[in-house]
Write a protein that binds this DNA or RNA. Structure first.
Lengths: 212, 212
DNA sequence: ATGTATACCGAACGTTCAGTATGTAAGAAT
DNA sequence: ATTCTTACATACTGAACGTTCGGTATACAT
């Protein structure tokens, strides 16, 4: 690694970090290249030297994020044994690493602003599909272990993903950390144990015993 | 009502309808006032005569949508008796009236593109809060009727809203109607009955009876 | 018949912003 | 010592778009 190459790499990172901060603060569209120029002291031409374009710069940041996210969860996952622990841990991981990540909102904005472009749509679909499959594996394991009712694991994975994504969507608006964490935990509980009241009489009747 | 006023109202509606179609097809940002001009044959000045600005025009469309949605659900709700029927009906209503509504994506785009503006954020928060409260009432009724376990109805309403919103978010990408409807129904089932396998031994032990 | 408010037109403006063309200096290669 | 390449700077382009505004036509009231 040359002295020159080293310098170059550093400036590239400097740009990336400044961009991340700005995207987080102002959003994707509202952050202009000029803003990044002003924040880095670097020049416009230089940014276009290091990154293909504005979108490329943003996608670079998303890649970094995804990589880190996966690494961290892979480490954490091993710590849990039962499906309940695992799901709660997963929910917590989401709250900590996604909900509070600076780029969540900017990413949503980016996706929806470019929502017509098929390549973006494809990538999002891919990302979701991966997540659903991840959930599916997790749930299937639990089914095989006799922890969960045996049903279609893919559908269940889809529902779990929907639940967590929806909670995220809602929680982005109200930034109370403890409440959010609590809601996520309760949501996992609902996912596992449901909400209907099993009247003693019902169970008893089903088992051929008198009520009460 | 004058002949002139009538004409005026008609053109206003003509603009609204053309705008709705265009917003649905191209999204909010990508639809220019010029596009609407071209589609209506009306002029730019005329559009600004009838509506405050581009945003005002869009919000007008959202208002219409919301009004219709509420009316239709109010009618439907009376038809159900148990909470299970009601929730399934609710889910179906969402799939039919929201997921397939032309403005869903454009609305998301609009919200995220204007996500910095506090008034927009407030309105969204309001909208969500209303929905959660709606769910809360529904669930509280079911709790009072002994259909559901008695817990915090607000949290449960929040979770339900999250679940449905997340499923919507996911289903927007895969437009298979039947699959979507099926997933929603199963999601309601999970919400009500959970996913864990109640081993017979567990229940039996809890009740002090031998297994099987 | 005439004044007036309403409905509508369309050219022009001002601004924003991603992207490019061109220049240059310093380090690396020969 | 020279040439070449890399890394960065400056100035500029061109297009898009929301909004404004001076003006016109039409229906209605008096």
């Amino acid at each position: 690694m040359n002295k020159k190459q080293l310098q170059s790499e550093q400036t590239k990172k400097r740009v990336a970090e400044a961009a991340r901060t700005l995207f987080a603060q102002k959003g994707y569209t509202a952050t202009s290249i000029e803003d990044i120029v002003a924040a880095t002291g670097s020049s416009k031409g230089n940014i276009y030297y290091h990154y293909q374009n504005k979108e490329g710069l943003f996608l670079y940041l998303l890649d970094e994020w995804d990589r880190e996210w996966k690494e961290q969860w892979a480490e954490k996952e091993q710590l849990y044994s039962t499906i309940e622990e695992k799901l709660v841990g997963f929910a917590e991981h989401l709250v900590v690493n996604d909900l509070n990540h600076p780029l969540t909102k900017a990413t949503d904005e980016f996706i929806y602003s470019e929502w017509k472009r098929s390549d973006v749509q494809e990538e999002v679909a891919n990302y979701l599909s991966n997540h659903v499959q991840m959930n599916q594996r997790m749930l299937q394991q639990a089914m095989d272990a006799g922890e969960l009712k045996t049903t279609d694991a893919w559908t269940l994975g889809f529902i779990l993903e929907g639940l967590l994504m929806g909670l995220g969507e809602m929680s982005k608006r109200s930034p109370n950390y403890d409440t959010t964490l609590n809601i996520y935990r309760q949501a996992i509980h609902v996912f596992l144990h449901g909400t209907v009241l099993h009247k003693p009489s019902d169970q008893a009747l089903a088992q051929g015993i008198g009520s009460q």
